[in-house]
Design a binder for these strands. Structure first.
Lengths: 330, 330
DNA sequence: CTGAAAGCGCTAACAC
DNA sequence: GTGTTAGCGCTTTCAG
C-alpha cells in the first residue's frame, strides 16, 4: 500500500487539503455533506495522517519519552502496563529508552530524547538522578519522576513512601522490645534502599536508640543468595527486611539452609510483594506497592502538565499495604 | 533553553544551512576549517537536530515500533533489554505499544504504528497474529515476529524451538518407559503452549502412542495454583511440564500440598527458567531460553532488513538449554 | 567546497 | 463553509 497523503485525499474528495485537515482534526465547521465525502475518500484510499508531518507543523508530537534502568524492567512490568494504558487513553505514544549500566550513558539518552522532540519525559529513579533531571529541565520540558520525591516548576513525582512504612514497622517491633532488626541493602535500587534505611534510623532515634542493622552487600558478591548463605553462618537477627522479592527468597533459603527457623527464630519481611513471595513456602510477609498505579498516575500527571492543567499535588505519594503471611509471628 | 534550529547555527557560523546539514550528517565534502566553525557554533548554541523535521525530509524516522502483549512484559524484561541495547547501537529509537486484552485493540495499535511512520515493526507473538501481521504487511514495512516461526518477503522471525525441546524430552522419558506425562496449558501464551503440545504429540506418535496428557486450565480459574490444588487431589502423573516459572511454582506447591513427593512420585519440569525456579526448594529443573538474545537478534535482523542487507536466515531459531535441578530424578 | 531553493506532509491564520 | 498560503526544520539536488 503506497503511502497516501492529504493531497490525494483532497483531490479524491474534490476539496482543498485544508478541509481534509479540518475533518481529520474534528473541526466542527465543516458541512456534514463535505465531511462525509472526505471521510469516504479517506477510507477508500486508506489514508493515515503522517504523525511526523503533524509533529513538525504543530511543534507537538503527542509523544512522551520513558527512561528506565534496564535492571528495573523485570520488576516494573505492571508499571509499564499502567503507563501505556493511560497513554493510550490520552492518545500519547511512548518512546522507550533503557539505561544499561556500562552500555548506555544517561547523557546520550537525554540527547536522544531531546532530538526526538517528545512532549514530556517520564523517568524511573532507581538512583540519584538530580544531575540528569537538571539537564532535562534546561530544555523546559515537563518531567515526571517515578520512585523518588522531587518537584519543581516543570517536575512532578510519584513515589511510594517506603520510609514511612519502615518507620511504622520498626516502631511496632521496637514497642514489642524487638531491637535486632536487619535491613538488606538493595544495590539495584539505591533510592528505595536509602529510604528504607532512613525509616529505620528515624524509628530507632525516636525510641532513643541508634540504628546499626543495615547489611551492605559487598559489590563482588554475584548473588545475594551466596552472600547471605555465608552471612547467616555468623549472624542472627530477630527481624530481617529485604526489598525485592528475589532478595527475600534468597534470605529465606539462606537462613533456612543455615538452620534458622522462620518465623520462630527470625522473622522475614519483603518490601515488595510479588506473585513469587506467595509462591514459596512459607509465604513471605510483604508490603505491596501499587505498581500499575505508579505508572498510570505518572502518565496521568504528565497529561495534566502537558495540557497545562493545574496539578494539585506535585509530589504524589502512593499507599503501601502490609500483608502479614507466614514469615512473621502472630 | 530555547529550541535552536539549523538556521541559527548557520548564522552563528556564517555559512548556509546546507553546510550545517552537511556537517551534522557527516558529509566529507566540507572543508575542515568550515566544519570546525560549524561544530563550534553547534556546541555553543547547544543545537540538537530535530528528528521530526529530519524524519519528514527523509521519509525515514530511524524508529521502530515494538508491540507487546501487556501480560508478556513481566517475563520479557530481558528481551526488551536486548532489543533496546541493539537499537541503541544502530541508532534506532523504539516506540512501545502494549496490547491489553479488552483495553487495546490490535487494529488501533497498527493504526498508531502506521501513523507514527516507524521504519519497521517488531511484534511479540504470544498468540495467532496472522491477521495483524497481514494488515501490517500491506503497508510494505519490514516486520520481525518474535516467538513464532513465520516469514515472507517483508517478514522475518526469531523464535525458540520449544516444540523440538519437548519432543526430545518426551522421547527420552518414553524410552525409559515413562508415559504418564502431563503438560499444563499456558493461557498467557497460546503459541508456545501449542508448540509444546505439538512436540509431545509427535514424540508419542513416533513411539506408536497417542498423547492425551494436555491439561487445560479452565477459564474461570483465577489462579493456576487453585486449579492445580484441586487437580492434584484426583490426578497423579509421572512427569509434569509447565511453561512459565510461576506455573511451575504453583505445580510444585499444589502437588506437595497434596502429599505428592517431588521428584520421587512426580517429576516436574519448567520450560522457562528464571531466578525464581532456582529460588525455591527443591530447585526446579528447567529449560532456559535466551531471552536477551531473542530481543537483541530480532533488532539486529530488523536493522538488516532496514538497510536492505541480505538476511541469510529469515526464520532464526534459538537454542534452548536444559538444566536438570532437583525436581527430576537422576 | 558552498549556497539557493524545492520539497517532505501537515496545520493554522487569513481571505473569500 | 471552504480555499490559499505561509511556515514547521530539515535534506538534497542543482548551480556556481
Amino acid at each position: 500500500m503506497k503511502k497516501v497523503t492529504i493531497y490525494e485525499v483532497a483531490k479524491e474528495a474534490n476539496v482543498s487539503l485544508a478541509t481534509v485537515s479540518r475533518v481529520i482534526n474534528g473541526s466542527n465547521v465543516v458541512k456534514q455533506e463535505t465531511r462525509t465525502r472526505v471521510e469516504e475518500a479517506i477510507s477508500k484510499l486508506g489514508y493515515r495522517p503522517n504523525a511526523i508531518a503533524q509533529g513538525l507543523a504543530l511543534s507537538r508530537t503527542t509523544t512522551v519519552g520513558l527512561i528506565l534502568p534496564a535492571t528495573s524492567i523485570s520488576f516494573s512490568g505492571r508499571m509499564i502496563n499502567g503507563l501505556c494504558d493511560v497513554a493510550k487513553i490520552y492518545d500519547y505514544s511512548v518512546y522507550l529508552h533503557t539505561i544499561t549500566e556500562g552500555v548506555t550513558d544517561i547523557k546520550e539518552i537525554i540527547d536522544e530524547v531531546i532530538k526526538s522532540r517528545v512532549d514530556g519525559v517520564i523517568i524511573y529513579a532507581d538512583r540519584d538522578l538530580d544531575d540528569s533531571v537538571k539537564l532535562l529541565e534546561e530544555y523546559n520540558i515537563p518531567i515526571v519522576v517515578m520512585g523518588n520525591k522531587i518537584s519543581s516548576d516543570n517536575i512532578c513525582s510519584v513515589y511510594v513512601d517506603y520510609e514511612q512504612a519502615v518507620y511504622d514497622l520498626c516502631s511496632r517491633y521496637l514497642d514489642k522490645g524487638i531491637e535486632d532488626i536487619a535491613i538488606l541493602q538493595d544495590r539495584r535500587n539505591d533510592v528505595i534502599s536509602s529510604h528504607i534505611r532512613k525509616g529505620a534510623q528515624d524509628a530507632f532515634r525516636d525510641h532513643g536508640k541508634n540504628y546499626e542493622g543495615y547489611v551492605e552487600v559487598s559489590k563482588d558478591n554475584r548473588s545475594t543468595y551466596k552472600f547471605l548463605k555465608s552471612y547467616f553462618k555468623t549472624h542472627r537477627h530477630q527481624l530481617f527486611i529485604a526489598n525485592r522479592d528475589s532478595q527475600a527468597l534468597a534470605a529465606l533459603n539462606a537462613a533456612t539452609g543455615n538452620g534458622i527457623v522462620i518465623p520462630d527464630e527470625m522473622e522475614l519481611i519483603c518490601m515488595n510483594e510479588s506473585k513469587y513471595t506467595s509462591s514459596v513456602r512459607p509465604e513471605i510477609s510483604s508490603f505491596s506497592a501499587p505498581s500499575y498505579d505508579l505508572g498510570a498516575i505518572s502518565m496521568r500527571l504528565m497529561t495534566k502538565m502537558l495540557k497545562e492543567e493545574a496539578v494539585e499535588e506535585k509530589e504524589k505519594c502512593l499507599d503501601i499495604l502490609y500483608s502479614p503471611k507466614h514469615t512473621t509471628k502472630e
